[in-house]
Write a protein that binds this DNA or RNA. Sequence first.
DNA 1: CGGATGTGTTAGCGAGCGCTAACACATCCG
DNA 2: CGGATGTGTTAGCGCTCGCTAACACATCCG
Lengths: 197, 197
Amino acid sequence: MPSTPTTPLANGEKSGRRGQILIAAAELFAQHGFHGVGIDDIGAAVGISGPALYRHFRSKDAMLGEMLTSISEYLLAGGESHAEHDGGPDEVLAALVRFHVDFALTHPALITVQERSFANLADTDRRQVRALQRRYVEVWVRAIRAAVPGLDQAHARSAAHAVFGLINSTPHSRHLPDDELAPLLQRLALGALRAAR
Amino acid sequence: MPSTPTTPLANGEKSGRRGQILIAAAELFAQHGFHGVGIDDIGAAVGISGPALYRHFRSKDAMLGEMLTSISEYLLAGGESHAEHDGGPDEVLAALVRFHVDFALTHPALITVQERSFANLADTDRRQVRALQRRYVEVWVRAIRAAVPGLDQAHARSAAHAVFGLINSTPHSRHLPDDELAPLLQRLALGALRAAR
DNA sequence: CGGATGTGTTAGCGAGCGCTAACACATCCG
DNA sequence: CGGATGTGTTAGCGCTCGCTAACACATCCG
């Protein structure tokens, strides 16, 4: 059975070498930036040497493309699944916050890459990732407007992006154990949205 | 008179060519990442050609170093100045938020570079920038703990970083005019901090 | 005047990049 | 067995990069 993704990279047919390579590459891209990482660095990180990567990916750009697409699909699928669940608007919003916080804490490198390497995508990949991201934002916008009355679309969208920034800042600052940081971030995010107006 | 900085780059002796180059380079670094920008690109952006930059900076690394140091010094000076002003804890915190929001909206490229290119700094520059950033964070930590009782240092520090992420996310999403976005961000940031505990 | 100083140019270096070519070998299966 | 397939290797290509060298010229000033 194909199953819905449980982990953003290394799923289904991406399991094995391909997934392993994407995970290692994401870590490196997050640390040094896309252009700061060489093909040989990525190979070395998975125990093979540079050019062997081309048995699995068409190009370095293709790695980034598949990486960001995969992340965006995972976020969208998770967001939609939580948004569909019944429960009041407050519960839905809290579930979205919890989902995103959990993702940021579990996959800090992926959050970093998603944030920073968008501009390095090839045109086609960039369009696809942007479309997926927009749909994810729209899930949030609907949830925010349902839970916080009196916000127009533009304000809700800005608030959504701001909360992403709040949650995604995690990788750069982890002075707390996850089991204290996660609830703090959830309080901060929901507190921010409650104050949106 | 030397005066305190009114603009993060292009101050005092940095006025003229040096400041102009740093501003142009910051814009390019923000768009493409440090390694994604060539010496010739920076030169072209100020109307001279590549190698002429070495009349003003020792290296490309030195440009980034001076850029981030300058930004960090500006933030720290502004933060300390607002923290010293009298007024209740709430007023001080609100002033810090307003100051940081204003900086993020006025200099989106600088915020982006400060966030993303820290890892590209040479060792010496990185140490200095880190020290300045820590002091800026400490200004916030004190203000947060004064205004939001019951937070220990670690939680306050995490909250400060989260609010930076919230405010700094602005460059990536501006669907509102500044005069609506700024108050929204201030409400979100203060709302988050109020909910920290 | 004439040297010093500051700021620009073009040519070109050495190094590192992404990627391809050519080959090696292990596994699988008709 | 023996070809097909998949996955690894090393050598090396063409290109771009940061940076230096060598030179040009304008301004300033003793």
